[in-house]
Design a protein around this nucleic acid. Structure first.
Lengths: 257, 257
DNA sequence: CGTGAGGTTGAAACCACTCAAGAAGGGTGG
DNA sequence: CCACCCTTCTTGAGTGGTTTCAACCTCACG
């Protein structure tokens, strides 16, 4: 299945714009009125789609824009030890990338496309100018920032799970949730990332990621081969994802003095 | 050593204010001029110091403010499985808390004080109003947001380290860095959090955290007993913190098509 | 001075990592 | 269109580190 052609927004020759974009509601325009949306639309750049492997921005590159993934998927990584890279995030349709340099300094991470990917680039300078004049836009920006921070926190929780099975379950469960929000079928996932990406993201060895994927399949929870994953038993996946074996449930129940 | 009395800002009877605050530069005022700083100062609330264990905000509570830690330390946690809590962050002097609800919705985490803690509360409604009128303030807000996101990413990297020793080393190293930024001695750390907090934060068993702390001490890298940690061999700590044994350095070097 | 939470230490089981090799895809060029 | 290559993924066995369970210590506090 070719996902790159799935988006109705990628029709060549037809110029995409905020007013006609199906992501409008969950993107920066939010609940902006038509006139305001046009003002925003005017500053947004829509570069040619990135091919698989092309980089969106590099480490230490001065931050110019904020990016919204229109279709495809973006991966962010930071250098890690000797020449290695650590995957810090995946950005799906409708999600933001480039927040690490919101202040207009330099990027602390690098980002590249996992598959053919279209993005909207919002120049930071223009964004600042617009938000001061459009309070609604600022609210929406903050809303999106909150969402991205929440995603990061979800990621943290994934990694503090102490079993590989639990990590992977949580990863798939969260991915399914995000696919649903992006308007894609949440139980038929085409993974845009490799096992190595998943392993790095979760802090596992590649082999472990592979084995656990098979393990979930053997248990009848998912149906997995290669990059296509079908969730069969969602409740059980949720149970695996939600549960961390907590040794001492009272350990953190500290009473006010 | 009692850290709660260490801050010159906690002098009773003397009302703290942005213009006289030593954190001014790295806090929201940033490089605002005197008049603008006063405007900001006027909306900032300074509640009575929190006692150890008192909560700053709870889960699902409507977000009212953004918080800056003036002295002390705040811990944030999310519920995790059956009645357990997962520590997602520690917020030291000069750092922000409450970003998970920046959009003015509800808090997805809870926050409480690890020791006697003073905070400044910036009402979100007022903040929004001010940023639209003061572009400089907005830039600084974004700068702080970037910093917090960077902290989260550092945390992620901590957790993907696959050895407990490395996780703890990275934790201590980063903590020392943040202490330095807060203007505290970076090599004489009084840990505000318990071993259980550290373990939860890093995704380890409490016993492992304890053992590794001792291990670092045995190796002559730190001097640790209970909550006071002295960094003896900073270069070696950095080496432990920076290095992850990367199996395949080329695994993520994907070439553009 | 007792009590309890927080912290440490020990021994054994388990799980994930490492090393190694083979299978399966996808892409490329003949 | 097929054969080839190379990347990605899988599978297997052994090892080592982390977890678990349990007991003990110690410090702060009432």
């Amino acid at each position: 299945m070719d996902m790159t052609a799935a988006s109705p927004l990628a029709i060549p020759g037809r110029r995409t714009s905020c007013p006609t974009c199906s992501l409008r509601g969950q993107c920066l325009p939010g609940r902006l009125d038509a006139a305001a949306t046009l003002l925003l639309d005017a500053v947004i750049q829509r570069p040619a789609p990135l091919r698989r492997g092309q980089s969106l921005y590099r480490i230490n590159q001065p931050a110019r824009s904020l990016y919204v993934v229109r279709s495809g998927a973006v991966r962010t990584m930071v250098p890690d030890g000797e020449a290695g890279m650590q995957v810090t995030g995946f950005h799906l349709r409708g999600e933001l990338a480039g927040l690490d340099a919101l202040a207009g300094e330099r990027h602390s991470a690098m980002a590249d496309a996992l598959e053919r990917t279209s993005v909207c680039a919002i120049p930071l300078a223009a964004l600042e100018r617009l938000t001061t004049r459009m309070p609604e836009l600022q609210v929406q920006l903050h809303r999106l920032l909150s969402r991205e921070i929440a995603l990061d926190h979800a990621h943290m929780r994934q990694m503090t799970v102490r079993t590989a099975r639990g990590k992977l379950a949580r990863f798939l469960y969260e991915l399914a949730t995000r696919y649903a929000r992006a308007g894609m079928p949440p139980d038929e996932i085409q993974l845009p990332m490799s096992r190595a990406d998943i392993a790095s993201y979760l802090g596992l060895a590649v082999e472990t990621a592979s084995r656990q994927m098979r393990g979930l399949a053997d248990d009848g929870i998912i149906d997995a081969n290669h990059r296509s994953v079908r969730i069969i038993d969602r409740p059980r996946l949720a149970a695996l994802a939600g549960e961390t074996p907590v040794t001492d449930p009272l350990a953190y129940a500290r009473l006010p003095a």
